[in-house]
Amino acid sequence: MSDYNYAVFDMVAERPHQTGFPGILNVGERAPDFPLEDLATGETVRLKDLWSEGLVIAEFGSFT
């Protein structure tokens, strides 16, 4: 498994992730589609299905 799910928050290593985007995907560009799992139903939801219906606000985060 990669170190994506770190066990310890490393302030130095994560600092670049706290301050800005790493030069990817600017406004005005088309976003990539991915599948996600609906927590309530367990069903697979695709981003493209969401934005085919209209505007989408997507907040990213976790409990901690």
Partner: peptide
């Protein structure tokens, strides 16, 4: 794929047009 920031928000228009990040 979207930047790996801890509490970011994006707004997409129809077709996935990025309108805000």
């Amino acid at each position: 794929a979207y930047g790996c920031l801890p509490n970011m928000t994006w707004i997409f228009g129809r077709g996935g047009l990025v309108m805000y990040k």
